[in-house]
Amino acid sequence: MHTIRHDWITTPITADILRGALDLEHTAHGVLPHRLPARARAQCADGQLAMAETQPSGVRLVFRTRATAVELDTLPTKRVYVGAPPRPDGVYDLLVDGRPAGRASVTGGNILTVDMATGTAENRPGPTGTLRFTGLPDGVKDVEIWLPHNETTELVALRTDAPVEPAPDRGRKVWLHHGSSISHGSDAASPTTTWPALAASRGGVELINLGLGGSALLDPFTARAIRDTPADLISLKIGINLVNTDLMRLRAFTPAVHGFLDTIREGHPTAPLLVVSPILCPIHEDTPGPGALDLAALSTGRLRFRATGDPAERASGKLTLGVIRDELARIVEQRADEDPNLHYLDGRDLYGQADFAELPLPDRLHPDAATHRRIGERFAELAFTAGGPFTDRSA
């Protein structure tokens, strides 16, 4: 059993050494980072949203220290899907002065067993685990520990062999991004290699990732959370969840998008605001939802999704990715005269037909690690380089 050295310094985990979270909940074990504020959480009892917003995509501990050894006690909640291959443990990424310096996982934790065929879930409590990074370079440095993007993580204790202080503000712009499980990180290899984290690194900005798996549904409370969060740059990736949940028809979709944008503009009237339509997803390009688990594939141990709607239902207002792209482009164009800082990006410029031929979606819905890298590089090039919507156009 690991014993705590007597010379360890324990530092309280507080908001001043945590970035990317909008709220910190004090629990029986420590603190639980949330990516939606308490008021938003109180307005929706959906279990999928509750799981997604407590998975700390983009959330990281950031501090300055001389320490050469760091320990972090956490209580993860690991997911097991009945009939599907085991999921790997969540990954923690260590950065020292902005450069990758280590990667590790925590064993133990709670086990959430999900039966996707029946929609039921069962939680079994488990023990706290310890993450350990040693051999860090001597001298003052900025340390970042990025929490697993896809594993709910309660933070129990932070220990170091030298004092810790909050890292100074580097004066970088804050980019807030909202989207679906693809933005959340889906099957990326680690928290710093989700496509938004990669794009933020290339763009030299501080990331707040409000990618919420299964939950980018134009919820008014999400718009208010974005409105009330300080940010210099904002992007919204809208579409896939609205199709695969079959949540609304075109009649509701258009005013919902306008309302979402109106709410954000109340708090960020002139910030560059980029609306991104869905990346290519062949099963839903012209076929409405709802999306469903492919039970035949699951019986052979493979996780795959399928579209269950009828393309003819588009005539009655059912949404497909093609319908959503056309409407988002039209909405942005309509608002452009009164909102010159509103921009549109076709998601197929991030991942399109040629990319699908080379890097198909393994489960027909989510990109893999290599595709996350490609999408992140493409987004950085289109948004953050000269002439992009996130560059200074006054220069």
Rank of each mutant, 00 (worst) to 15 (best):
I4K: 12
W8P: 01
W8D: 14
A15T: 14
H26Q: 15
T27P: 01
G47S: 10
A50F: 08
G58I: 12
L61M: 05
L61C: 04
P85Y: 02
P85F: 00
V91W: 07
L94N: 09
L95E: 13
I111G: 01
L112G: 01
L112P: 00
V114R: 11
D115C: 06
A117V: 07
T120K: 07
E122F: 03
R132S: 15
G135K: 03
V140D: 15
D142P: 00
N150T: 11
E151V: 14
A162L: 07
P163D: 09
P166K: 07
G171P: 05
S181L: 06
I182H: 05
S183M: 11
S186P: 02
T192Q: 02
L198P: 01
V205I: 11
E206W: 03
D232F: 07
S235N: 01
L236N: 13
I240A: 09
N241F: 06
N244F: 14
M248H: 05
V257K: 07
D262H: 10
D262F: 06
R265M: 09
G267D: 09
A271P: 11
V276K: 06
S277K: 03
S277A: 12
I279M: 14
P288Q: 01
R302I: 14
R302W: 08
L303V: 15
P311K: 08
G317M: 08
E327D: 14
E327R: 15
L328N: 11
E338K: 08
N341L: 11
L345H: 08
D346T: 00
Q353N: 08
P362Q: 04
H366V: 05
R374P: 01
F379A: 14
A386D: 06
A386Q: 05
G387V: 03
G388E: 00
R393D: 09
S394L: 13
